[in-house]
Structure formats: structure tokens, C-alpha cells
């Protein structure tokens, strides 16, 4: 569903109509004066709809910062971020919060679930925050697809790490957000559980047409994506379409990791 085009005096250099998320000259610096660190240096990047994109780069390359800015969790120092046609940089805290609630899904590396809520309550949390009722059929589909049927009334501490991440994926998918951001979603998982979660994320793209953006430093995880955006020193350093693990490892090696 394309967003109405906002009126602006200077159109951005690139913002394809199909892009789910895009950054234009996105810059983020921390600190001031001599201590200033540039985490993102005028990054221009777009993420296609219904595609699974991985952001990769060595530690300190700015990949997490990029994701935080794209997801409206952090504010840019300069430049712009668009979610569809909405300019995030123009929004205030409350509008950003509502936007995250209604249009963005999150899967974090750890501490994804609220310990006081059971699995189902965690899954429904964003919808309840918005005061919306879940689509029952969709809820059943997602729960069945993620194999959570018999775990819905368990508290997070009663679930394994893999199960917890699957609950987090279900929570991210349920409101049918414009984009799901996954930040090192397999970082704390053993390889089998990790593969499961990555398969689910890729499945959501293939089967439901979900847009997924994932930050990872694991070449195997990146190989599940349709496209890899490489980041180094706060700049886009290249990209790979339909990557294999070896492609990613080679590309990272040329970046000097």
C-alpha cells in the first residue's frame, strides 16, 4: 500500500516507490568536540518491500545504530528516514511511539519478552497497547506456523531460548507491520534454534509478503536474506544479492575483518 507522497522542497536523490524503508544522508554522531564519534556518516540506503534484507558489518560499523534510527528508536543527527512515505525525523516522541506500535515489529537479541506476561499476552501486547482486537484467524495461523500452540500460556522463564524467540517473532508479525526489524535475533541461540528462527523470518517474507530487516554479524544468518547490505565505518560498503554464506564471508574479508 503506497503512502501519499509528502510535499517537500528538495526531493531526495533516491527513494524508489517500492521502498519499505529508506535513509537519506543519515548521519549520527555521539558526543561533542574531540570526543565526537561518527556512528553513521551520510548513509543512503533503501529496503525493498516483501524482501528479507540483512545489514552486516564488523563491530563498530554502525549497523545497530542504523537499525535504531530506521526503526524510530533513536533520533538522527542529520539526514532523513522514511517509513513508506512517512518522514520519521519529523515526528515527536509520542508520534514515534504510536508509529512503532502500529507499523513496526521488533525482534531483539535477548530480553524480548516481558517476564510478567505469558506467551500469548506477550504476542498480543502491541495490539493491546493500540487498543486493537487481533484478527483471530491470523493469530491462529501465526501461532500454528511458529509451532507455539501448546506453549501459549507459559511464562517466558518456562520457555527455552528458541521458543522465546519464536514468541517474539509471532509478536512482531501479528500486527502485520510495514517492516519487522530483527537485531541479532539468533545471537543467543544454539545453531538449530537459530536456523528455526531464521527459517521463520524468511518464511514470513515468502508466505505473507512481510518486509524484514535484520542486523547480524553471522554470515550463516545473513545467507537466509535476499540481499545483504554491508556497512563499514558508518558508511555503506557494498551489497550482495541472493547471498551464500561464502559470498558473505568473502565480502567481510575484503572489508578487513
Amino acid at each position: 500500500m503506497p503512502e501519499p507522497h509528502p510535499t517537500r522542497t528538495a526531493p531526495p536523490p533516491r527513494r524508489p516507490a517500492e521502498a519499505a524503508v529508506s535513509a537519506v544522508a543519515l548521519t549520527k554522531t555521539y558526543g561533542r568536540g574531540d570526543a565526537a564519534v561518527t556512528a553513521l556518516d551520510a548513509v543512503d540506503v533503501t529496503f525493498d518491500r516483501a524482501a528479507f534484507t540483512a545489514i552486516m558489518g564488523p563491530s563498530g560499523s554502525g549497523k545497530s545504530t542504523l537499525m535504531h534510527c530506521l526503526a524510530g528508536l533513536d533520533t538522527a543527527t542529520s539526514g532523513q528516514v522514511f517509513l513508506g512515505g512517512t518522514a520519521l525525523t519529523a515526528l515527536r516522541d509520542r508520534e514515534l511511539t504510536v508509529l512503532r506500535r502500529d507499523r513496526i515489529g521488533f525482534v531483539f537479541q535477548s530480553f524480548n519478552l516481558l517476564p510478567v506476561l505469558d506467551a500469548q499476552e506477550n504476542v498480543l501486547l502491541p495490539l493491546q497497547l493500540a487498543g486493537r482486537r487481533p484478527d483471530e484467524q491470523w493469530l491462529r495461523d501465526v501461532v500454528a506456523r511458529l509451532g507455539l500452540g501448546d506453549r501459549l500460556h507459559h511464562r517466558p522463564h518456562e520457555l527455552s531460548g528458541g521458543q522465546q524467540q519464536r514468541v517474539a517473532v509471532a509478536r512482531a508479525l501479528l500486527p502485520r507491520p510495514d517492516v519487522v526489524f530483527a537485531d541479532e535475533p539468533t545471537g543467543n541461540l544454539d545453531s538449530r534454534s537459530g536456523a528455526e528462527v531464521l527459517g521463520l523470518l524468511r518464511g514470513s517474507v515468502r508466505e505473507f509478503g512481510q518486509t524484514v530487516v535484520m542486523v547480524t554479524h553471522d554470515p550463516v544468518a545473513a545467507s537466509y536474506a535476499d540481499r545483504v547490505v554491508l556497512l563499514a565505518d558508518g558508511r555503506v560498503a557494498g551489497e550482495i544479492s541472493a547471498p551464500t554464506t561464502d559470498d558473505v564471508v568473502d565480502a567481510l574479508r575484503t572489508l578487513g575483518v
Binding site: 516522541d93 509520542r94 511511539t97 512503532r100 502500529d102 521488533f106 530480553f111 501486547l125 502491541p126 509478536r171
Partner: peptide, 12 residues
């Protein structure tokens, strides 16, 4: 936890 809730759309 507060951070997670804020990320998921809990307003201040």
C-alpha cells in the same frame, strides 16, 4: 523492560 515496552509502542 521499560525500554522494550517503549520500543513496542508503550507511550511515556
Amino acid at each position: 523492560e521499560s525500554g522494550l515496552l517503549r520500543a513496542l509502542g508503550l507511550t511515556r
